[in-house]
């Protein structure tokens, strides 16, 4: 260690460090790139035809807002570099195509079948590098750690989505949706791509393993349900107060009226 710290001051140290840094990032990037290529390969079987089919679908359904070659218009952002995951999430949850312009795209019945979605994804992925559709291994909740995932969820997600994933309000008509019933894949893709106003949680912020832990946590609490009876929407003290004032006092008033009434 001593030797190393002495050499740190050497004039060539900076150059060496730079070279080392470039080497590491470069190799990591190639590794990451090849992984995502591999994933792209196994989610899309016949790449070339898929891209072509996807382009046709895109021109017919998406180009009005996103532009003929996905370069973006005043009505929709550019999709170059958003990656297959973004398309799979947006189209796969029915958010795209949007019904109308609004504060945010809403989930609704899905417009395309799985094959069409993967063709669209393949086309958009071919436009520029971006997050790929996650593989099965990072979605496998049996390998995740729910406690670790819960900690990450509380720090990074709970402020918008609520600690029990019940959803919450954002500014000017936007909102964070509830996460109950959202598939593992879509949760992962949302974290990786940051749909709408959600921030992006790239792999250097929350690693794929951490993302799997978060998904494990969400699926655990969803499977658990509530321990103490009906959860009242998991909305916290407001729902509880409303319940006491309506149902609680309602039952009590019914009893008081019976108690003070005169029998026939």
């Amino acid at each position: 260690m001593k030797a190393l710290s002495k050499k740190r001051r050497h004039p060539l140290a900076a150059v060496a460090l730079l070279l080392f840094g470039l080497l590491v990032t470069g190799s990591l990037y190639t590794a990451a790139g090849s992984i995502s290529e591999a994933k792209a390969a196994d989610t899309t079987s016949a790449s070339v035809t898929d891209v072509e089919e996807g382009q046709k679908l895109f021109v017919a359904n998406c180009a009005t807002c996103h532009g003929m070659s996905a370069e973006g218009t005043a009505d929709g952002p550019s999709l170059i570099g958003v990656g297959a995951a973004a398309v799979d999430f947006q189209v796969g949850t029915g958010r795209m195509p949007m019904q109308m312009q609004g504060p945010q795209a809403q989930a609704k019945p899905v417009q395309f079948d799985d094959e069409q979605i993967s063709q669209l994804s393949a086309y958009v992925a071919s436009l520029g590098a971006g997050p790929a559709i996650p593989g099965e291994d990072v979605l496998d909740t049996t390998q995740g750690d729910a406690a670790q995932g819960g900690t990450i969820f509380r720090v990074n997600c709970a402020m918008c989505h609520n600690a029990a994933a019940g959803g919450g309000a954002l500014t000017r008509g936007k909102f964070a949706p509830t996460l109950a019933g959202v598939s593992e894949k879509h949760i992962y893709e949302a974290m990786a791509t940051g749909p709408q106003n959600m921030p992006v949680f790239n792999d250097s912020n929350i690693t794929p393993d951490d993302k799997r832990d978060v998904i494990t946590f969400l699926k655990t609490i969803e499977a658990n349900g509530s321990a103490g009876g009906a959860a009242l929407g998991n909305l916290g003290p407001v729902a509880e107060g409303l319940f006491v004032w309506t149902a609680g006092l309602g039952i009590i008033i019914a009893f008081t009226i019976w108690l003070t009434s005169r029998p026939s």
Binding site: G150, T151, R154, V155, A158, M159, C160, H161, N162, A163, A164, G166, G167, G168, A169, A176, I221, S226, A227, G228, G229, A230, A231, L232, N234, L235, G236, P237, V238, E240, F243
Partner: peptide, 21 residues
């Protein structure tokens, strides 16, 4: 029949996180 204050959902206090609602 009705759950109230599920503290296990909220988790332990830590000054950094916060829950919507």
């Amino acid at each position: 029949l009705f759950q109230i204050n599920p503290i296990w959902n909220y988790g332990p206090y830590d000054p950094s996180p916060v829950s919507a609602g």
